[in-house]
Design a protein around this nucleic acid. Structure first.
Lengths: 170, 170
DNA sequence: GGTGAATAGTTGACATAACAACTATTCACC
DNA sequence: GGTGAATAGTTGTTATGTCAACTATTCACC
């Protein structure tokens, strides 16, 4: 459309010789790539502690329900990123002594998962270092930019959910 | 800070009982989650054709260099999302007849990868359906919103690259 | 209160990802 | 022109993810 337009920084980053078909196409790719970089940065901080990002997410979810515990599939529903293999993910956390499981008395199909003291201790280590590593990445954005970003992402997720009946059972 | 503030839609989505620590923290999570949903939507369109998102990305990259071909690690550097196992990823594409490989004469360490007619044909199927499925997800954003979004994501990636020496060899 | 459908989670088989060690080739430079 | 470091990619091993089939329990309702 504007072949004389300056090459976008994303085009340069991915060494593309052709511009994107549309701003929407570019936004799609930019989002995937930015998230991938954030994930990379996050894993640099947490993987030295021998847990994956997904496991970190499970621990945080369980800490949020420390007193009551949560059934396995409820954890799954609360994950930031989908993790279909939730059983084995929790298996590994249990094997590492970070989590404990027990069948409920009221509904004997359910398995309540609880975070263990060892898990809480690990999280307390990460409570300081994770925000320090991640929040600084947003320091180029003014408060208004952040609001606008959150709003745009919200709108995208809404459109996505409307079109992906299979996305969550919720 | 504002405990009386309306619960954010992300907090609701993830069924969190506590608000985010900061808008930056929320933006971090929102980005990961939005990208995950986009990936989900994309895979609904391309996986029925028996290729993964990463393989789709490789095919697109190779189409962009159809006449010359590309060395394996150059593909790796151009991927939207990191894929350390590039060799075996291309192995599978080759086994499926979508890609061809040959050692270069000038530098016999390199392996040039070329897209095959079968790969081009597959992409031409997806050329219509992928944008149709993905671009509509951005229809809630006005042109100005898109520009702002791209700009914010750019700033985040820049900060990320500056702090992740290990991210790319580039 | 008995039967079929739905829910909660596990398991097995298989595919893919991740990490480290390895080969082959080229480059830098003395 | 020979030697050590760097580059390009592969391979082996081990961990993790994926999909479908399976068990146990509960719910809906006649």
């Amino acid at each position: 459309m504007f072949p004389f337009m300056a090459q976008s920084s994303l085009t340069r980053e991915l060494r593309q010789n052709k511009p994107f078909l549309s701003p929407r196409d570019e936004a799609f790719v930019a989002l995937l790539r930015t998230a991938d970089m954030l994930r990379w940065r996050l894993s640099e901080v947490i993987e030295p502690h021998n847990i994956s990002i997904a496991q970190f997410n499970v621990l945080r979810i369980l800490r949020g329900a420390e007193t009551t515990g949560l059934p396995t599939l409820e954890i799954s529903a609360r994950m930031v990123e989908q993790a279909p293999g939730i059983t084995r993910l929790v298996d590994r956390l249990e094997a590492a002594g970070l989590v404990r499981r027990e069948r409920t008395r009221t509904d004997r199909r359910q398995v309540l998962c609880h975070i263990e003291p060892k898990g809480l201790k690990l999280l307390s280590w990460l409570d300081a270092s994770v925000p320090q590593a991640t929040e600084v990445l947003f320091s180029g954005l003014k408060p208004g930019d952040l609001d606008k970003l959150l709003e745009s992402l919200d709108s995208i997720r809404k459109a996505c959910a409307a079109r992906c009946p299979s996305l969550r059972k919720h």
